[in-house]
């Protein structure tokens, strides 16, 4: 709980810094979308994300938990996440954190929707699968 709260505060601080110092919204799916093209600040952000991953792998390897799905469902899930987030214009960070915190109607609806379908999917896989 404490670690989750600390991590959340750190995520908020990173999003706040990008917004105040860069004028940009820390929405990861949008940053990835924009990065699949010409070089921009987004490449730097993604490089920072990967470096953060390397630091975690070295100092706190338990943070990078093992996958719960095998390769084929994981590949399908990746496609759904990429397609769905770009259709709705945001993911857990863009809608869930940055949009909800400015009380955007679109983001509140998107966040409610992906939480519900995420919970339903886990219910179907865990209980009925």
């Amino acid at each position: 709980m404490i670690l989750s709260l600390a991590g959340g505060l750190l995520i908020g601080a990173a999003a706040a810094l990008l917004l105040l110092a860069g004028g940009r919204v820390a929405g990861i799916s949008g940053i990835l979308d924009g990065a699949l093209g010409r070089p921009s600040w987004r490449w730097w952000f993604l490089a920072g994300l990967l470096c953060g991953g390397l630091i975690l792998a070295l100092l706190y390897p338990a943070a990078l938990g093992p996958p719960v799905a095998s390769i084929a469902p994981l590949a399908a899930a990746g496609f759904l996440v990429g397609f769905g987030t770009r259709l709705s214009g945001g993911c857990t960070s863009g809608h869930g954190v940055c949009g909800v915190s400015r009380f955007s109607t679109r983001s509140l609806i998107a966040t409610g929707t992906f939480l519900i379908t995420g919970m339903l999917t886990v219910f179907v896989v865990e209980r009925l699968g």
């Binding site: 990861i28 799916s29 990835l32 994300l49 996958p67 719960v68 799905a69 469902p73 994981l74 399908a76 899930a77 990746g78 496609f79 759904l80 996440v81 990429g82 397609f83 769905g84 987030t85 770009r86 259709l87 709705s88 214009g89 993911c91 857990t92 960070s93 809608h95 609806i109 998107a110 966040t111 929707t113 992906f114 939480l115 519900i116 379908t117 995420g118 919970m119 339903l120 999917t121 886990v122 896989v125």
Partner: peptide, 18 residues
């Protein structure tokens, strides 16, 4: 619809983009 599709992928894998 996009958010609903994203939620299914998230629930299947436990991964969101970040």
């Amino acid at each position: 619809v996009g958010a609903a599709i994203f939620g299914v992928g998230w629930g299947l894998s436990g991964y969101c983009p970040g």
